[in-house]
Amino acid sequence: MINNIPEPMTPNVFRINKKYKETHDTFTIELEPTQGTDEFFFSPGQFNMLYVFGVGEAPISISGDPKNPKTLKHTIRVVGTVTKAMYRLKRGEVLGVRGPFGSHWPSENAVGKDVIIIAGGIGLAPLRPVVYQLISQREKYRKVVLLYGARTPEDILYTYDLEQWQRRFDIEIKITVDAAAENWRGDVGVVTTLIRKISFDPSHMIGMICGPEIMMRFTVAELQNCGVGKENIFLSMERNMRCGIGFCGHCQFGPVFVCKEGPVFNYECIENFFGTREI
């Protein structure tokens, strides 16, 4: 009987159908299961544990369209041994996938409200699925705004999507970079400065934030300055994860496990320890 319990640490084998560079240190892979069903369902904000045969595993957020379960997309930044090994994989090769794990962005809470999405750097990857989702049911929401900060113009992710979204009249996109050469016609400055440049109803809005922790700290403060209540702010946290299912203990963030209760948290639930150093 006990031997029938599924092994949550066993990855399923997925094949790489496409792989392309996004920026100098990021790339996207499109995956398809090699066994069982050919669909992979997830909610925007969730992540998978991706495994390179014989090398290791890393938590990577899902960055594709939830309405297209036949293509599982991950955008990966090359930062460590495992992500380097992923970068070396070619089309037709395989990856292990466990997931989807974790909580998701509160799209259902956002119905009838303004939605302000604020992304920093690779933080756009776990937010892209929610943008797809909001666009596909655009009539359910009031304003939809995406504020995106990157390091330089060359570090901007998903330029093809951003250009398409910018052409729409029902979604406002503002992009800023930390540093640029003179040929850059867009904004220069940190992403928090964009918040003052848009108008929204602070009492009827949902803010969704993902980026480096410092960026999120300042973004939360700026939203609160604008009168946004903490119950309407959501952010996606990052911690070390070895298992993704609450067994390994590494992703503890105060009383919560980022893999189980997160990665998407309501700010009110983590406010008391969000700013605690080295927590």
Binding site: Y51, G54, F247, C248, G249
Partner: peptide
């Protein structure tokens, strides 16, 4: 109960 997960390959 904290554990680490190590993947190895030959």
């Amino acid at each position: 109960f904290c554990t680490t997960v190590e993947d190895t390959g030959d």
